[in-house]
Amino acid sequence: MLAEETSKDTLCYGGLRQLVPGRPEAGVFEPVSPLARSITDLFVVVMTLGALVLAGVTGTVVFFGIRYRARPGDDEPAPIYGNRRLEIAWFVIPAVIVAGLLGLSIVTARAADPPTTGTPDLVIIGHQWWWEVVYPQNGAVSANEIHIPTGRPILVQLESIDVIHDFWVPQLGRKMDAIPGVANRFWIQADLPGVYLGACAEYCGTQHAWMRIRVVAQPPAEFEAWLQQEARPIAPPATALARQGQALFESKTCANCHAIDGRAQRPNVGPNLAQLARRETIGGGVIANTPENLARWLANPGSIKPGSLMPDLNLTQQEVAALVAFLDGRP
């Protein structure tokens, strides 16, 4: 698996790795890009400092608690009202520490969030509750599973069609809000091929939980091949059942919300289904994309993802089978 390769080179934070088991769902402490790594490095610095401060304060409290606990027959202790010099030092020392942290923050922010000039490699649009993914390079339109080439920064333009969402794939870089009426830009990068999991991080309504992200990083040549295929229209139906499904796709109004041309950006009420068969999951990650699951989904989306904006069309079993044959396209 690709994920196995990922594990070999990225683990510079050996001690912390134990706390964050597994890949590809590994989080903040297994960065695979310079962008994310710069943040992880800052983490290590700040956490070390924090641990020292915490140990200092807690240790002092415990020490005083033992050393100065009341003993029978104690007199009232002598009052100590303060010590101006000490207290001024208490202001100055933290001030120096936070000044250092601010400096580190500015440096890290430049590394993690470089200027976003140029043409976006990806346009990602948040919807309740799925991600629309547009590749300006050839006009391919996809959903929820984002393929990128490894080894170079990818400029993402992030938009939203309804409410505020947030794009977060911890191993690839910073998170960024997707805000209606605003086009935010930021960089992601994966230096190693693999699958990187993420999710919508801003609460966006009923199904915020199932607005997950899979980023598939591929070597450039592999990515280019994938991208060419992703722009194709849906495969022409090969069987009678699939042809029936194609007719149902129009007559049952599926086509009002879903495009089946790989370059069509409208309609985009629901995901572009041209290359649905090539995706790992459906419903924003709620179930694996198998023909059986697709049939369950079509039969009643709300039973799998309650609140999903896809209506229950009251399809018969036969109609479901026909639509699966058409959309899935796999023999």
Binding site: I39, F43, V98, L101, A109, A112, M176
Partner: peptide, 8 residues
């Protein structure tokens, strides 16, 4: 407050 960490 070290805002690049906040981004994660």
């Amino acid at each position: 407050a070290t805002y690049p960490l906040d981004w994660q």
